[in-house]
Every structure is written in structure tokens, then in C-alpha cells.
Nucleic acid binder design. Structure first.
Lengths: 303, 303
DNA sequence: TTCGATTTGTTCGTATGTATT
DNA sequence: TAATACATACGAACAAATCGA
């Protein structure tokens, strides 16, 4: 079998929680420790039942929530992280794996691991589920569901500050009556008004956001949340129903009142499952439909 | 650096594609080959750019499609698979990982890895997305979205054989006019008719399925497909829209014709993305809604 | 353009922990 | 108790992509 020089570890990190003289360092030869940060061991006594990689994952998630690395920025390399946290590189990879699967991080071979940013692409494929109605999905060519999604153009219709109604307060986890910003946004697809969005966000989380700033944003709304307020929407939860269109909604959509529309109640969350936005979308599904591909995964979604 | 005794491998499996005398077996020491099956190396010349674990994953998927292991049965253990395919156990785990994530396989520590079966639970959490309308999602208690789903009771309304219309033929990837079974099923939730399903399946894939066999099934419909015909639905794709309820649908649902209903077009697929079923569901969303939790993952969904 | 350093991706191997039978 | 099987963790080597000198 050869090779007994390997340090016979027995849980490397049994230093109990805080404190723990860093220099001791088992594993990975003593030398070359120059310039290296003192390792910040995970508080992990091995008896807790929590796997190491999950503890690290949690640590990374918290760091992300605190904005330690900005969207688009690179995390420290895997080898650096493995040193900083005194775990093996495999454990680091495992911790990152799930964050990548959740689209919170993005890995690029040869470059690094990056915090996912709210680009138009991401929005389209991860949060925007309304597509042109397709009869005859091409088939035969193997790539059935990469529907040619289209970037909507938006126009702001209302922007006002108001006290949170009960339902929205509950959605956002804030007190009833707390100030919220209520935004009404009309979305066009193919030159046609298709969706009316009613967006509610806590005014405390988005201070000094006003009509002008909202309209002058350069990218998507979630991009604005992220770039201007450091809030990354990473997940959303939607409940759909078919209802008769209220008159106030019907008008901007060019529908007769009472016409069936798709009503979507979405709650959008940031890192620690904290709600950020409550949104009701009214969708005219005469020419469009809601696509729920639960789920083609994305094993091979090149590009 | 010490330790040069490690076998200097250079791609173990370079045996070129088919044929390849099995006995030659590079890697994994010569001994202990008793009783072991001759390894069936993956045709993998290392230059193809296809990772080993993905080749193995494909191999496993094909084996599943052929019914090599029945639903509920255990696969060979990871160590056995690693011997059979002459890859490391880590590579086996990696290949299985994605199948587990896709709910095609289920791992149980200490027991084995099993082919997912269509139990009621699986149906409810993976394919059935209509839940009672919730105002005030409990919040506060950390487990927000494990909605208390309810098993629907069903009653068959129609069962007939007919030539496939164009749209359904396309959905199912069969010739127009080929025989299909068309099934109409009414679903009740809480003693109330909520969903009308119109199901279309190829009669060639489900020979001798008749009204009686369909009604006498013991479990879910997908369970019937699986147990009686060896066809496992592993994925589905749904397109939703809001429409005015046709009279023929309105009647069984106890709705006025023209009332808004949610229309869901689903195509259900088996292993190699082969379509199995085309279904249109009409949902009365006055007391229920469609839940699209894209996606809470299921990192910690104990139970 | 080439080359080397850096970083993620793949594969192997080993040891040990924990659940099941 | 012992054997089996999956789960976690570590480490090594090499492949492939990227980027700057």
C-alpha cells in the first residue's frame, strides 16, 4: 500500500468553535503558509450531524447575503477557499455545487466561480415564464423546449408609496401598514400588451427609490434591485389561477372586462429565503402561455 | 511530495469502442477477479470529450428504459457497478447523482439505490401541482411551502379509442391517425369536482388497455403505466393558459359555460425524453390554484 | 504566437462514518 | 455482531479553458 506519510486525520477540524489557535494546522504540509490568511475554521465539532460541506455552504450563503462578494465578481479560487476554511478542495466543490445548481453561483472553467448577476438572459430563463403560444413544437430536432423567448419591453404606469395591506405585508414579512412601494408596469411582447404587473416591495428595503430612478434603470427590475440595493433575487414561488379580468386591468391589456386572464401571484426571495417582492401579474393568454418545464433540468443547455 | 508509487494511470479505459476483449482489464489490480462479471467497459476513447460519468449515466438510463431494473428494485451496489464498468466508485456516484436529482433513482443509506416508483407521494409532489388556495401562507414557522396537498379522488367519464388528431399525434411523436386511447377523468378535491383531465396515449404503447383495466387500477394513472406496461413517466412539461370554459367541460365541473378556467397542456415523458402522454387539464381555480415552486430545490425536505 | 500560471473539470483511490439488515 | 451499502472527507494527478506576459 505504501504511503503512510499521509497525515492520519480523524476529523481535521476538531478545535471546538471559536478561538482555536490557527497555526496548528493539520494536513497540507506546513510550508508555504506565508501571506495566507489565518484559517477561519467552521464551527464544526463533528458530532453535530451537520456535514462539513453543508456548514461551508451555509457560511458562503451568509457571506453572499452580506454582500461580501458582489454580483458578477469572482469568489476566491477553490484552492484558496480550501485553505481559508481548512477543508479539502473536494469539500469546497461540494459546497459550491448546490449553489451552482440553484443558480446562485456560476462556474467557468479556467476563470473562476462568480456570483450570478441578473442579466437579461438569466431573467428570461429563470424568472420569466410567459412565451408565445406554440402549436407544433418543432420536435425531431432534439431541442424541443428552448423556446425562442423574447425580451419584453416595459412601460411604467403607476408608482406610489402606500401602507402595506394585510396580504402584502404577510407576503413580505413586514408589519401591516408599513410603507411599501406599489408599482404598476405594462409589458409588451411582439409589440402587443400582454402582461400587467403589480409589484409591491418594502420601502424600507429600497430607500430613496422613486419613479425616476425606477424608470431610468438600465436593465431588468431584478437587476435594479441587485445593482442599486445589493439585493439578489434568487428564487421565486408562483401560484396561478384563471380569473375574469377586472376592468382596471382589462383596459391597459386591451381586453374586454370579464375576459379570462391568467393571474400569477409571485413571491420573490433572496438568499436566506427572505421575501423581497410580492407581485401579481395579469396575463392575456390569447397569444401567449405560461411555461412550466418542471423540469428539463439543464444538463446540456449549451450557450 | 513523496508517494510516487501510485499507479500512473493515463485514462484507464482506452480500449477503443466496441469489441475490446474484456479480459484485458487495465487498472484496478488484477487479483480478486473471481466470480466477478467480465467488465463491460464503456466505449470511451477519452478523446470524445464526453466525460466518463456521463457515458455511464447514459448507459444506466438506457438500461432503465429497457426495464433492466424494475421500479422499486435496487440497482447493483455502487461498488459492484464500479467493478462492472471498470470505473471508480466516485464516478459511479457522480453518474447516479443526476438521476437522483431528476427523481429517477432514489438512494437510501445502508440499503441501496432504487428505481423510483410512482407512489401517491411521488405523484403528489412531482406531478400534481393543484393545491387548495392559500391566503396567508403560515410563514414564521420556516416551512412555508410544504403545502398540505391532498390526494384527489377520480371518476372515469369516458374511455374510447380513436385515430390521433394532428396535434396529439405531434405531441406523442406518432403518425397522424394512428390509434390513440382518449380518456376523460374527473378529479375531486375535498369532495368537490375541480379538475377535468383529457388524456391521450398511444394505443400501440398500451396494448389491451381497456376501460375495465383502467378503472380497476390500484394506484395512480402513472402507477398503472409503470406497473402494467413498464413505462415510467419521469418528467413533464406544462403550458398554462386561462380560457373561457367550453360547455362540455363546464357541466361536469359545475361551472357556467364561459367561466374562466385554467387550461393545462401537459406532455409527459419517459426516460430518453420519449413522449408518453398528452393531457389537457381543465381546472376550476375558484378554490384552488396551480403551484409552481421553481424551485425550493429540495435540499432539506426531510420526510 | 507561444508559453506558463491559474482555475475549474474529471477521474482515481482511500479511509472512515452511519444506517440497514 | 458482522456484513453490506450509501455518505462524507481527504488527497492526488491530469485535462481543458483562460489569460496575461
Amino acid at each position: 500500500m505504501a504511503n503512510d506519510s499521509v497525515t492520519r486525520r480523524m476529523r481535521p477540524n476538531v478545535g471546538e468553535a471559536a478561538g482555536a489557535a490557527p497555526g496548528s494546522g493539520a494536513g497540507s504540509g506546513s510550508g508555504s503558509a506565508k501571506e495566507a490568511q489565518p484559517p477561519t475554521p467552521l464551527g464544526h465539532d463533528g458530532t453535530s450531524g451537520v456535514p462539513l460541506y453543508r456548514a461551508l455552504q451555509r457560511r458562503l450563503t451568509h457571506a453572499l447575503a452580506e454582500g461580501q462578494w458582489k454580483p458578477g465578481e469572482a469568489l476566491p479560487s477553490e484552492s484558496r477557499l480550501s485553505m481559508q476554511y481548512a477543508v479539502s478542495i473536494g469539500t469546497v466543490r461540494r459546497a459550491i455545487d448546490e449553489l451552482v445548481a440553484g443558480k446562485i453561483l456560476v462556474r467557468q472553467q479556467g476563470r473562476g466561480t462568480f456570483v450570478a448577476a441578473h442579466t437579461a438572459d438569466r431573467l428570461l430563463f429563470h424568472f420569466f415564464h410567459v412565451v408565445a403560444r406554440s402549436r407544433g413544437s418543432t420536435r425531431s430536432t432534439e431541442r424541443p423546449v428552448t423556446a425562442p423567448r423574447e425580451m419584453p419591453s416595459t412601460s411604467l404606469r403607476k408608482f406610489r408609496r402606500m401602507p402595506a395591506p394585510a396580504g402584502i405585508a404577510q407576503d413580505l414579512g413586514i408589519a401591516r401598514g408599513a410603507p411599501v412601494l406599489h408599482i404598476e408596469n405594462l409589458l409588451e411582447l411582439g409589440g402587443r400588451a400582454v402582461i400587467l404587473d403589480e409589484i409591491s416591495i418594502s420601502a424600507r428595503i429600497f430607500p430613496d427609490l422613486d419613479r425616476h430612478r425606477f424608470e431610468q434603470r438600465s436593465g431588468t427590475i431584478y437587476g435594479l434591485y441587485q445593482q442599486a440595493y445589493g439585493i439578489s433575487v434568487v428564487r421565486s414561488n408562483e401560484r396561478l389561477s384563471a380569473v375574469a379580468c377586472p376592468a382596471s386591468i382589462a383596459q391597459p391589456l386591451g381586453l374586454a372586462p370579464g375576459h379570462p386572464v391568467l393571474s400569477i401571484r409571485r413571491i420573490a426571495y433572496t438568499y436566506a429565503d427572505r421575501p423581497v417582492e410580492s407581485r401579481v401579474s395579469w396575463v392575456d393568454t390569447r397569444e401567449h402561455e405560461y411555461l412550466s418545464d418542471l423540469w428539463k433540468n439543464d444538463p446540456d443547455h449549451e450557450r
